[in-house]
């Protein structure tokens, strides 16, 4: 009797390991199934709705003191856009650069960097949370997005603000980074178009000349190298249709978690 025990144990061990491997292979298969990933994304809408229920639209992201600043604010994603046009503008200190704000607005406008810097500004020390898990704290200065909106006057049907960027995500120079936020975030006081980081002109590695800061969202919403802003009713027709470069690859549009 006892002699059989190790065999039996081995058998059960193998059964367990086999069942485990099969379950894992099943999980991987499910990850590729469209229906199943749709079911999983119920988690995203539950979180989004729960967050909306819990908070006011104006709830503020935490602001920090100078003592909390990260010694150097790391660059993530693109650190230097693979685009000759961009570098031509950078060479000239972005004097020829302009930001277009258009789409569903009464009065589309173009803003030069100097014009933007002369508008009312906001300075905030906030934490940047990357979807990967790390955080860095930086001091941003920029023009609140609502200042632009009050000039261009959004039409009532505008539901999202789309940010187009100068950095191509494909090696062949196509597939430009873009992002989108809703009107709650667009009018939020901490949502700014930043041109300075830690009291210095915004460096190229962090998104010069202008990057978006939308402080209650993860890092991938903080679009860098802005070229154009468009107010839209829906982003279905833009690029992959999911409202952002990373969203098109499978990340959640709702980046509050």
């Amino acid at each position: 009797m006892m002699a059989h025990l190790p065999d039996r144990r081995k058998f059960f061990g193998r059964m367990l390991a086999g069942a485990g491997a099969m379950a894992l292979a099943g999980c991987d298969k499910l990850s590729h199934s469209e229906t199943f990933t749709k079911i999983l994304s119920a988690g995203e809408s539950l979180s989004h709705n729960a967050h909306r229920l819990l908070s006011t639209r104006k709830s503020m992201a935490q602001e920090f003191s100078e003592a909390d600043l990260s010694p150097s604010f790391r660059s993530n994603g693109t650190s230097s856009p693979n685009s000759p046009d961009y570098h031509a503008l950078a060479k000239n200190g972005f004097a020829d650069w302009a930001l277009e704000v258009g789409g569903l607005v009464e009065k589309p406008l173009k803003f030069s960097l100097t014009q933007i810097q002369q508008m009312p500004s906001r300075t905030q020390i906030t934490r940047h949370d990357c979807v990967e898990g790390w955080s860095a704290i930086g001091k941003w200065k920029g023009t609140p997005l609502h200042e632009f909106l009050s000039l261009v006057k959004p039409k009532p049907e505008a539901r999202f603000v789309v940010f187009y960027c100068a950095d191509p995500m494909k090696a062949d120079g196509t597939n430009f980074y873009y992002e989108s936020i809703d009107m709650d975030d667009a009018y939020h006081v901490q949502t700014i178009l930043a041109y300075a980081l830690n009291d210095q002109t915004l460096p190229i590695k962090n998104g010069a000349p202008i990057r978006l800061r939308v402080e209650r969202m993860l890092g991938y919403k903080q679009a860098k190298y802005l070229t154009r802003i468009e107010l839209v009713k829906s982003f279905d027709h833009i690029a992959g249709g999911k409202g952002g470069y990373w969203e098109d690859t499978g990340y959640e549009w709702y980046a509050g978690i």
Binding site: G20, A21, L24, C27, D28, S31, T37, I39, L40, S41, A42, G43, E44, L46, S47, V131, E132, W246, T249, G250, Y251, E252, I257
Partner: peptide, 23 residues
């Protein structure tokens, strides 16, 4: 990879699994 869902490195998918089952 035998300890993760999904097996390959795939952050966006892992987040979908994690947040669904967290609820």
């Amino acid at each position: 990879s035998w300890s993760t869902i999904p097996g390959p490195k795939w952050l966006s998918m892992a987040r979908h699994w994690h947040f669904f089952f967290a609820w």
